[in-house]
Simulated scan of single mutants.
Amino acid sequence: MQGMAVPRLTDARKELRRAQITEAAVRCFSRNGLERTSIADITAESGLSTGSIYAHYRNKSELVRASAHSVLAERAEALGEYAASSTPPDPDELLARLIAGIDPIKARVAVQTWGEATNNPAIHGIVVETIDGMRAMVHESVTAWLVKVEHLEPAEAQQHATAIAHRVQSLYLAQLLHTALQSPDEETAP
């Protein structure tokens, strides 16, 4: 065996593998709940070895954080596009777009994570970080709308955007909860 090179994963391949593991974790968390999901469940769901899972994530808490960051990254991309647009959406349209992007599986994981945050400090930190990040992105999008469409001065727009962004995010989170509480039959009903 001496002299055999061990293949190394490229950075792109590592990111693909991490995404594969995170997606498997989200499916398991949605189906079994955070508490009842084990690394063995995630291993089986991902089709990878336990060693591969642990090569990318030290524990389940890291997987929860990665899952939250994954969902936030999706929202960040969309919100960034809205803010960069020459005519960003008004708050009602922004809320409608955010709601249209809710994935029922990820909504269930989000709500489970919120529940776990009440008694697990590590998960609490993840939830606070995720919600604060989302709030900042919604604020940025609303500020862009106030400046580009409503023609407010940037400082005034920043100030006005705070209350508007808070309402938009609150309504979005309420819809996320509603979606998470729907049964799978209700999700597919017209």
Rank of each mutant, 00 (worst) to 15 (best):
P7K: 13
R8L: 11
L9Q: 15
T10F: 00
D11V: 03
D11T: 08
A12C: 07
R13L: 10
R13S: 14
K14G: 03
K14Q: 15
K14T: 12
E15R: 13
E15N: 06
R17F: 03
I21P: 09
A24I: 07
A24W: 01
A25K: 03
S30K: 09
G33P: 10
L34M: 08
L34P: 08
L34R: 06
L34W: 00
S38K: 08
S38H: 06
I42L: 05
I42C: 01
I42T: 03
T43Y: 03
T43S: 10
E45L: 09
S46D: 04
S46A: 12
G47A: 11
S49Q: 07
G51W: 05
G51Q: 10
S52L: 13
Y57R: 15
K60E: 00
S61N: 11
E62F: 01
L63E: 03
L63P: 07
V64A: 09
R65Q: 12
H69I: 02
S70R: 15
L72Y: 01
A73R: 14
E74R: 13
A76Y: 01
E77A: 15
E77Q: 15
G80W: 01
E81I: 06
A84L: 12
A84N: 12
S85Q: 05
S86K: 14
L94W: 00
R97M: 06
L98D: 02
L98G: 15
I99K: 13
G101S: 13
P104N: 06
K106C: 11
R108I: 04
R108F: 00
R108S: 10
A110F: 12
A110Q: 10
V111M: 09
V111S: 01
T113L: 04
W114H: 12
W114I: 14
G115S: 08
G115F: 03
E116R: 13
E116V: 10
A117C: 07
N119H: 14
P121L: 05
A122V: 11
I123K: 06
E129W: 02
D132G: 13
D132F: 07
G133K: 05
G133N: 04
R135P: 00
R135M: 11
V138A: 04
S141H: 01
A144V: 03
W145K: 12
K148D: 02
V149K: 04
E150G: 09
H151V: 05
H151M: 03
L152R: 08
L152T: 00
E153G: 15
E153N: 13
E156Q: 12
A157Y: 01
A157C: 03
Q159G: 00
H160G: 07
A161M: 05
A161G: 07
I164T: 10
A165Q: 01
A165I: 02
H166R: 13
R167W: 00
V168C: 13
S170E: 12
S170Y: 03
L171E: 11
L176E: 07
L177F: 09
H178R: 15
A180L: 02
S183L: 09
S183N: 09
S183V: 05
D185F: 04
E186I: 01
E186M: 06
E187C: 12
T188C: 08
T188G: 11
T188E: 13
P190Y: 06
